[in-house]
């Protein structure tokens, strides 16, 4: 893996004029990524379709974690991202994006969940009364 990353960094480096953008992995790295992806896809489908775990919260957390791991697998083995590619700028952009995404997702769900909960006991009728 580390040798692979080194090759990638070299392939994408600005000094590499000879062959165009050499490093996009090898058959082996693509197959590794593919096999890992298949495993990480089959497990969550099996967990949900087979009703393997009784606790749905645990199942939810499990499939979320498996999904996250599979995303990392895709980024590493298919998108060939490493901390070194493009002089580290793609990695910087990725970290920045992930930060924004986490804030946006967690923030939205959190805020709206609380709003929903505070609104919940009120029926439409009650709200109309309060507004008067």
């Amino acid at each position: 893996m580390s040798a692979d990353a080194g090759h990638l960094a070299q392939g994408h480096g600005s000094h590499d004029h000879g062959h165009t953008e050499g490093g996009h992995g090898s058959v082996k790295s693509y197959l590794t990524g593919f096999v890992l992806s298949v495993i990480l896809t089959v497990i969550p489908f099996w967990l949900v379709m087979g009703g393997v775990l009784d606790n749905s919260l645990v199942t939810t957390l499990a499939i979320l974690v498996l999904g996250g791991v599979q995303m990392v697998v895709h980024v590493v083995y298919f998108l060939h991202m490493s901390t070194k590619s493009e002089g580290g700028w793609t990695f910087m952009a990725l970290i920045f994006t992930i930060t924004l995404v986490v804030i946006m997702l967690a923030g939205s769900v959190w805020v709206m969940y609380h709003m929903n909960r505070n609104m919940m006991p009120m029926s439409g009728h009650e709200m109309m009364n309060q507004m008067r």
Partner: peptide, 17 residues
């Protein structure tokens, strides 16, 4: 393909769950 991982996890699997 990466985005689809999010879709099938969050929308389909969690929805059915």
């Amino acid at each position: 393909d990466l985005i689809w991982i999010g879709v099938f996890t969050v929308v389909y699997l969690m929805g059915v769950l």
